[in-house]
Simulated assay, not measured.
Amino acid sequence: MSQVDAMSSPAAGPSSPSRETVERAGLSKLLIESFYTNRATADKERRTRRKNLENQLDQLQCSQQEREDAIKEFGENESRYRRIVRQKMSINDFLTIKVIGRGAFGEVRLCRGKGANEDLYAVKILKKKEMRQKDQVAHVRAERDLMRSASENDWVVKLFYSFDDEEYL
């Protein structure tokens, strides 16, 4: 029996995917779910902002021209905001001031934004290789999701940006 015949024979049974394949499939699923969840949330927030604007314009009893101008300006502002959100961020967009903590997978730095945004940020830099070796990917993803969704909670650190490169998150 040839090697191909042995693989396709019913006695051999279906081969199960490797652990790496299962992990990659799981990560892909999370990435896709996260993308569409964020997209739906952003669309809902944009519709809410538009409805609030229209309610305010109704209360102010604006003329039709003023109303059209306000809605046009709203659309331009939303477009500008979406363009900013889509911008790719990197560690090069921040100036490191001081390392304020070290942990098992990386460090936390106090950084200042470059350019127009000169706010102070705590930037957590994690080594991807070590997280994978110690099987902590799900924990890190859960931490990111928690910080992203808890923006109204004063007890949880707010997530402003997240980005990665080949070596670090």
Rank of each mutant, 00 (worst) to 15 (best):
L126V: 14
R102N: 03
L120F: 08
C111I: 01
E107A: 05
E118C: 00
K114N: 11
K124D: 09
A122G: 06
L126C: 13
K129M: 14
N117I: 03
V108E: 00
M131L: 15
A104I: 09
N117W: 01
E118H: 08
K129L: 14
R109Y: 02
A104N: 08
G106D: 03
A104K: 12
R102I: 08
R109C: 03
A116V: 00
A104D: 12
G113K: 00
A122I: 10
N117K: 02
G101F: 13
R112E: 11
G101K: 12
E130W: 14
V108Y: 08
A104L: 13
G113H: 08
K129Y: 13
K124E: 12
E130N: 10
A122N: 08
R112G: 00
G115C: 03
C111S: 11
R112M: 04
F105G: 07
G101D: 05
K127T: 14
L110I: 02
G103F: 11
G115W: 01
E118M: 02
A122W: 06
K114W: 01
K129Q: 15
N117Y: 06
E130M: 15
L120D: 11
M131W: 10
G101Q: 10
K127A: 08
R102L: 02
L126T: 14
K114D: 02
E107D: 04
L120C: 13
G106E: 15
V123K: 11
G115I: 07
G106N: 03
G115N: 04
E107S: 00
L120E: 09
E118K: 09
N117F: 00
G115R: 06
I125S: 10
K127C: 01
M131I: 15
E118I: 08
D119N: 05
L110T: 05
K124L: 04
G103R: 13
V123H: 08
F105H: 14
M131D: 10
A104Y: 07
K114H: 04
F105K: 09
R112H: 06
E130L: 15
N117H: 06
R109F: 04
V123R: 01
N117R: 02
G106P: 00
L126E: 08
L126D: 04
V123N: 06
L126N: 04
R102H: 06
K124S: 02
M131Q: 10
G115Y: 05
E130S: 15
G113L: 00
G113T: 10
F105R: 03
C111G: 07
G103M: 08
K127V: 12
M131Y: 13
L120M: 10
F105N: 13
A116M: 01
G113W: 03
E118F: 09
R112A: 02
A116S: 01
R112K: 12
G115H: 09
G101N: 09
K127H: 10
